[in-house]
């Protein structure tokens, strides 16, 4: 009951430094600070302050060396960005990679979910195994697959004679991007499978039974009953893969390192290289801010659509 009054007093105290609270409120404020301030201080130092300084840096030309002057260039960094071919190529590759990945991850993940929610006895074991790659970090996954493409693919090519498909994808500018999609799918399919499983298990058994009685074939049941009821899980998985795909870095670094010939240097890696590789701190930071804006737009769209659907359901 006293809570709203307290926090009004507390907020007044925070903002204006007004005195005059009674002892009870003071001790409540004390507890409030004791519980929240330690985390908030760390959070402010690690996230808030760097974010704000980051916006500031984006308007300067600077090589990152403290002794060298920072030159204010206004919006120049953002203008340069629009004419930077390497950056635009990287942005386009990221979009392409993300679109392909969203499709493959969700198709494979949904197929897995349908398989392991069948009443088979080995379903649980299978689910456990399929989820496994997600737990191995992206960096290590990339190295594992480097070997698969280098050696196992070559081996398959020799044995089967299909060397148009089985060769080292990592050496080909176009196929290297497909290699990234493959590894990312391998990593994420088990993860979205978990989301779809939750969705499938949420479908009431009576609905499925009713459709059986009405004589629906299993394909009809899948497309007319299961899929529409899976829409919320679908939205979540779609945007999870969308934002994960857009931010991919570790797999990119260990699998292709951006090569061959920059053909797989995706957005996150381009920012890293601009700042720490070429030493363009101000310009690289401008890219980083644009990166943030795009990610924020994707995520906010997700929240908007998810909320809208929840209302409709």
């Amino acid at each position: 009951m006293a809570c709203p009054a307290f926090s009004r007093a507390a907020s007044a105290n925070f903002h204006n430094g007004k005195e005059g609270m009674d002892v009870a409120n003071k001790s409540k404020l004390g507890w409030y600070l004791l519980f929240t301030v330690p985390l908030l201080i760390i959070f402010t130092i690690v996230v808030i302050i760097p974010f704000l300084i980051g916006i500031y840096y984006a308007f300067f030309d600077w090589d990152g060396i403290a002794a060298n002057p920072m030159e204010f260039v206004g919006l120049d960094n953002f203008v340069t960005l629009l004419q930077d071919d390497r950056f635009l190529q990287s942005a386009w590759l990221t979009v392409l990679f993300t679109l392909l990945s969203v499709i493959t991850v969700n198709v494979v993940g949904l197929a897995f979910a349908l398989l392991v929610t069948s009443k088979l006895r080995t379903a649980n074991l299978t689910r456990t195994m399929l989820f496994m790659p997600y737990l191995i970090g992206g960096l290590i996954l990339g190295y594992i697959w480097q070997f698969v493409f280098l050696d196992v693919f070559a081996f398959f090519g020799e044995v089967t004679g299909l060397d148009a498909v089985f060769f080292n994808w990592l050496l080909d500018e176009q196929f290297a991007l497909f290699a990234l999609v493959t590894v990312f799918t391998w990593q994420m399919a088990g993860y979205v499978m978990i989301v779809y499983i939750a969705g499938i298990q949420g479908i009431p058994g009576e609905v499925i039974e009713a459709s059986k009685i009405d004589g629906a074939s299993s394909w009809q049941r899948l497309t007319r009953v299961t899929f529409p009821l899976l829409m919320p899980a679908f939205t979540i998985s779609l945007f999870l893969t969308l934002s994960y795909g857009f931010k991919i870095y570790d797999v990119n670094l260990s699998l292709t390192g951006g090569g061959p010939a920059n053909a797989t240097e995706l957005f996150a890696m381009n920012i890293y290289n601009e700042i720490f590789g070429y030493g363009n701190y101000g310009y690289g930071q401008a890219k980083a801010i644009v990166f943030f804006i795009i990610i924020a737009a994707i995520t906010l769209t997700q929240v908007y659509i998810t909320k809208k659907r929840e209302v409709e359901m």
Partner: peptide, 9 residues
Amino acid sequence: IPFQTIMMP
């Protein structure tokens, strides 16, 4: 906020 946006600052 993605990590790349705050790593340098």
